[in-house]
Each structure stands twice: as structure tokens, then as C-alpha cells.
């Protein structure tokens, strides 16, 4: 029973799809954010799997950068959610349809 790179890719695709479905179907902005994090994470698995099978360090480097960008994204995203909540008292994206603040 050997584990090939395909196993990891399938896992990655599964997680990515679940994340994408979350982004499309949920209304809560926070959960949409979490789904995006999930997608980023799925991509990391693919990067690391390729890095492991080709013995290339580059895959790991890109994962590091993805981690850092995710941190930055979360910080700004949560800031946006908080400021929206402060103005509109909601975190549901379908209730934020006005361009006027």
C-alpha cells in the first residue's frame, strides 16, 4: 500500500473544493474568510507534495510565503469585518448591499 503524490493531490483538491463551496454558499463573512484559509491550506498540501516527490526546496518556500500572506490577509480581513460590523451591526454578506457607508 504505497502512498503516491496523487493521494496528496486528491486530498488537496477535496479540501480546495470544500473551501470553494464554503465561499460560494455561506453568508457569514467570517466563515467565508475561514473557507478562504481552507483553500490556501489545500494549495499548501499540493505544494509540499510536489516538493517532496521532486525533492525541491522551492515548494516549502512558497508555502512559507503563503502562510505569511494568509496572516496578513486575516489581519486586514478581520479589521474590515469589525469595521463593517460597527457600522451595520451585521456580518452577513447578503445584508451588505449598499455602497453608501
Amino acid at each position: 500500500m504505497i502512498i503516491t503524490v496523487h493521494h496528496y493531490l486528491v486530498l488537496s483538491i477535496l479540501l480546495f473544493t470544500i473551501g470553494a463551496i464554503g465561499v460560494v454558499t455561506r453568508r457569514n463573512a467570517l466563515i467565508i474568510f475561514m473557507s478562504i484559509e481552507l483553500m490556501l491550506n489545500a494549495v499548501n498540501i499540493a505544494f509540499l507534495a510536489f516538493a517532496r516527490w521532486n525533492l525541491l526546496i522551492e515548494g516549502k518556500m512558497i508555502v512559507l510565503f503563503v502562510l505569511a500572506v494568509a496572516a496578513a490577509e486575516a489581519a486586514v480581513g478581520l479589521g474590515i469585518v469589525i469595521s463593517i460590523y460597527r457600522n451595520r451591526q451585521t456580518v452577513y454578506v447578503d445584508e451588505m448591499r449598499l455602497l453608501k457607508g
Binding site: Y8, N44, L48, A49, R52, K60, V63, A74, A75
Partner: peptide, 23 residues
């Protein structure tokens, strides 16, 4: 398992320990 123990620990540190706590 993919031979990236360092990245794995960073993942816990950053995602689980910092980003999700913020969430």
C-alpha cells in the same frame, strides 16, 4: 508526513495559534 516538520509546526503556530485565535 511530507517531510516538512518545520512547516507543519509553523502551520500550527501561525494558523492555529495566531490566525484562528484572532478569528
Amino acid at each position: 508526513i511530507l517531510g516538512a516538520a518545520f512547516i507543519a509546526i509553523l502551520q500550527i503556530l501561525l494558523y492555529a495559534g495566531a490566525i484562528m485565535v484572532l478569528f
